[in-house]
Simulated scan of single mutants.
Amino acid sequence: MTGAGPVRRWARALGLALLLSAGSVPVLAASPDIDDFLQQVQTAARTLDFAGVYVYQQGAVIQSTRLAHVVDGTGERERLEALDGEPRECLRQNDIQRCLYPDRKLVVAQPARSDHFPGLLLGDGRSLGKRYEWKPSSRAYRVAGRRCTVSELLARDRLRYSYRVCTDQKTHLLLKSQTLDPRGHIVDQVAFGSIRLGTDVPTNALDAKWDTHGWKQETESGTPTDLQAKGWRFSPPAGFAPVVQLSRKIGPNHGVDQLVLSDGLAAISIFVETFDPKRDQNVKQGGMRQGALNIYRLRLASYWLTAVGEVPAQTVRDVAHAVQYVPKAAH
């Protein structure tokens, strides 16, 4: 079944954890060909100056975002502006970003993430040759008026999705990416509709749209935690390794613990929160999906367990059912 509201909530939480875990995926041996290709794509996303609008389709939801990225003497700077729904923009300076919500007169400071489009990798990606087969091709395509080369990252098992990407022939910048299920069907996709590079990037592309003087200021972060010490036991799918463990507040008197697993391209989060009969009386167990994002919830002892990830539904279900809770008194 689908559920846009809960899906967006857990997707935001997954994103925050990835902000705090950048660069921490363990390194294993991998194919140099896929290494070189992915490093070229990731380096282009981190070092080039570009500005444009990209469109992201996730299931029935389509969202447009204006993006500007510039590297100068101060480091990496970026501006993301949502063009659909509630007005909002995020301004990044290296490892910190400030997100502006004009309807609420709110500024939220948080760790910055660099894995979003047109980036691909979560961490350095050096173990990916063990889990994905890279199939380059000579087939050319055009995206946003620029010529790009199509290639595929094919999953070696059914635990994860495959990807079809189109990278700029001159700069290696990722211009389009499609996520493919095990049958080869597109489950989500993102692509630039327009883009400028280098000196064609407008000088005001990074300017904030709103004056935030007098707005409320908040900081969003998580505190490191040890879920095993709390009695939790996890069995990650093959190729997925723990990246970060966090405790976060998501509401008044409502906390959640989170474990993030990643294989370098895909991520799975496992959320643990105390069951509250009043708050959770209408919450149902089972799965929901939006595009490539799958969620599976179940009740375990006096806790809610939620697995979230851009992986096949069976993977998040298996991850959730493999979790065990051993109360401290039983240790």
Rank of each mutant, 00 (worst) to 15 (best):
C166G: 04
S151P: 05
T203H: 14
V7P: 00
M1K: 14
A307K: 03
F234G: 06
W210Q: 06
Y161E: 02
D35Q: 08
Y163S: 10
R98N: 15
Q178R: 12
S269G: 12
K216P: 08
G184I: 06
F271D: 01
R126K: 12
D35V: 01
E89A: 09
V150Q: 10
T74H: 13
N94K: 11
V108R: 06
D157G: 06
R248M: 07
Y132A: 00
V53M: 02
G119S: 14
L67E: 04
A109Y: 05
K209R: 12
G251S: 08
E152L: 13
D157P: 09
I268N: 00
R164N: 11
S24C: 03
F234W: 08
E152A: 14
N204D: 14
G59M: 08
T199R: 09
N294D: 14
G73Y: 10
V143I: 05
L20F: 08
W232I: 04
V187A: 08
H331N: 14
V150T: 09
H321R: 15
I195Q: 01
D95R: 15
S138R: 10
A112K: 14
A140E: 15
G73I: 05
R297I: 11
L159E: 08
G287Y: 05
R126E: 10
C148M: 06
P26E: 02
C148H: 00
N204W: 03
K278P: 02
K130A: 15
G251F: 08
G5C: 11
V311R: 02
